[in-house]
Design a protein around this nucleic acid. Structure first.
Lengths: 388, 388
DNA sequence: TTGTAGGCGTTATCAT
DNA sequence: ATGATAACGCCTACAA
């Protein structure tokens, strides 16, 4: 147990006890080596003004020489910080997420803080447990991406005085820094664009209900439908869950209508993954995109621009999202704890690619009159000239 | 400074000093509350046998009551661990990476350890700085994905006695636990499959040079070329850097040959991203896949199975990779520091999708005879029945 | 300008 | 079965 450090003993020199690693030098070792007190070493290393240039240089030199590095743990205990920030995500494997993470990492790295990645899988218990773990670790701050914390977790974070930035989902009751995108504007851009192409019957694949962003996007769709006087058949709105599979099946539902005119000439999906699912479904169904049906996504994930996908979509500045969140957080950490909560709302933009075009002449011309009462199920018959 | 804790004072009760959060309870608070010593509390919480069931229950109950949680920092300082493991990746935004991360997170989470994500961008300085930071934090272990550490960093890690698992790239000099995939087998499967379809002239887009996995994959390609007696024109091997763009331009090079017979009938890429780039380039060039040219990737990233991409590829068990790495690491951490290094080599598998088919009749029929004294390098003529 | 002396919150050792 | 005590390595009043 007793390290038994004698005054002039060489740094960690004496007992090379057996096998283990040589026990890295402490500030005491360095102090002894420099012939000064640990306090002076500490001050010197911290660049405090109250230390003679000469001694500071000596300390710095010797420190580098023996490769001294202060223990984060020890100074963390002393100073009550940990120089790491917690990043709570739902699913890192969702292509939207890594780009945001990248943005966060970039600015966090500049301050030499570490990122503790918490993948909750959207499970409440995992979320709670991670938050606890982060608080136990005395993290400097926390970013929660695309999900909300329980009230109880929220309170714990607040009680601990840990700055928190939420991204993409506002926490209902609580008020904290927030980074998001103007969902309404984004969807509106998509809708306006499709309308300008001539579409009047536009389907919408919405995201999970309980999410504020999903609500915003749906609301924007509905407003656009009203504003432009578009077909507002409730069957034009189908539920998805942000996954590709859900986009696939939602699209099959959308296109399953018996009467051809009941089917949308364009589909807007609340995110790219579902839009890609739609593309897949349409492909399987033999429905041409964009000649028969246009598809517009939301997010502009990396692969959306692949020539074979070539998805028209609304760009969500992902990296910038992470960047802003991290900046907000660092500012909080730096001091202004009391200031009122701030919000950064990023601007979406329309990326026109290959999955959108004016509706086919057939589809536009069609609704002249409907024959009579046939419960028909024809979908493939008006397939002839699909002008790309 | 002085918290001034009196013997019977209620836990953190006295001085509600001003604004700040109420300072979470320490083990001393809990001990006082329970009327026992902090040591007993510690033992009780740790489930040590030397504590009366009755007192243990009391402690546990009270602890839950006041929401006591031990400070990770303090116990970390005392015990020399941090219950967090460092995960060093090159680029989290590369679609291959998050799946591996997910595997790591999954098993690490089971032990309630945290993941510190270090995104190096493949920059040497960032890598070094991150490693240092991790060591300062007393991480329990470290996983390095698809890159290698400098000798110096490596030594530091070893000197600190921190278990290290490398993934996908072996560290040249040093020996540590390793998780990888049988690259040679993977590429061989791709090649054998293409040969079985009748291809004799297969292009290869290789990855970055200095990587062992890239070397292995290239070597396997060359061996397959030799083994099957395929065309071995050096122009059939082009350099990529694992990015989609590089796959695109590499493919353009491959297809730029003047003589049609100089162009490959199939392309194997060292990863999916490059294969997707190839698909894009071929699409732009108006070359039909798979009828004109077949494409096979490596990794089987999530979007490879999209109906519009539908990439034939070699599956790399990504999640399992992360899983194995984490398991190996946890075992090391648990104790067997001295044991010889272990390796886990995962098995690749062929996923046949839509980008592969027998070569077109034209391409096969073409090389019927070549005039005369051409400084030839004939390799494609004995192509007829390639039994699957 | 430098040194001394706590104390951050735990756990481990050794008494009792 | 429980308690006093000493570290773990660092920072920071305060004294010199």
């Amino acid at each position: 147990m007793s390290r038994n450090r004698l005054p002039q003993e060489e740094a960690n020199g004496g007992t090379d006890a057996g096998q283990g690693s040589p026990a890295r030098p402490t500030i005491l070792d360095l102090a002894a080596l420099c012939g000064v007190s640990p306090a002076t070493v500490s001050n010197a290393l911290a660049g405090k003004p109250n230390v003679k240039a000469q001694t500071r240089d000596l300390v710095l030199r010797k420190a580098r020489e023996i490769g001294y590095h202060a223990s984060s743990t020890a100074r963390g205990l002393r100073m009550g910080r940990s120089w790491s920030i917690g990043l709570v995500v739902g699913d890192i494997a969702n292509p939207f997420v890594p780009d945001v993470v990248r943005g966060v990492e970039d600015v966090v790295w500049r301050e030499r803080k570490n990122l503790i990645l918490c993948n909750t899988d959207f499970q409440a218990e995992k979320k709670t447990a991670y938050v606890r773990s982060l608080l136990d670790k005395q993290i400097d701050g926390m970013i929660v991406l695309s999900q909300i914390l329980d009230d109880q977790d929220m309170e714990r974070v607040e009680a601990a005085g840990i700055p928190l930035v939420t991204v993409n989902r506002r926490a209902p009751g609580h008020s904290c820094d927030y980074v998001g995108i103007d969902n309404q504007a984004g969807v509106r851009m998509a809708m306006d664009y499709l309308v300008s192409l001539g579409h009047r019957r536009i389907g919408f694949i919405k995201g999970l209900f309980r999410s504020s962003s999903a609500d915003d996007r749906l609301a924007a769709y509905q407003e656009a439908v009203a504003a432009h006087g578009l077909d507002s058949d409730p069957s034009l709105v189908v539920q998805g869950d942000y996954s590709m599979e859900s986009g696939d099946s939602a699209t099959r539902n959308l296109m399953a209508a018996q009467r051809p005119t009941a089917r949308p000439t364009a589909i807007v999906a609340a995110n790219d993954l579902m839009a890609l699912g739609a593309l897949g479904a349409l492909h399987d169904l033999g429905i041409k995109v964009p000649s028969d049906v246009s598809v517009v996504g939301f997010d502009n994930i990396q692969l959306a621009e692949h020539p074979l996908l070539n998805l028209t979509t609304i760009n969500h500045p992902k990296r910038e999202t992470g960047d802003s969140a991290a900046r907000l957080l660092l500012q909080r950490i730096a001091g202004d704890r009391g200031d009122p909560p701030r919000s950064v709302i990023l601007k979406p933009s329309l990326i026109v690619r290959g999955t959108s075009a004016p509706p086919s002449a057939a589809a536009v011309a069609k609704p002249r009159r409907r024959s009579a009462s046939q419960p028909e199920k024809n979908q493939a018959e008006k397939k002839q000239a699909a002008g790309t």
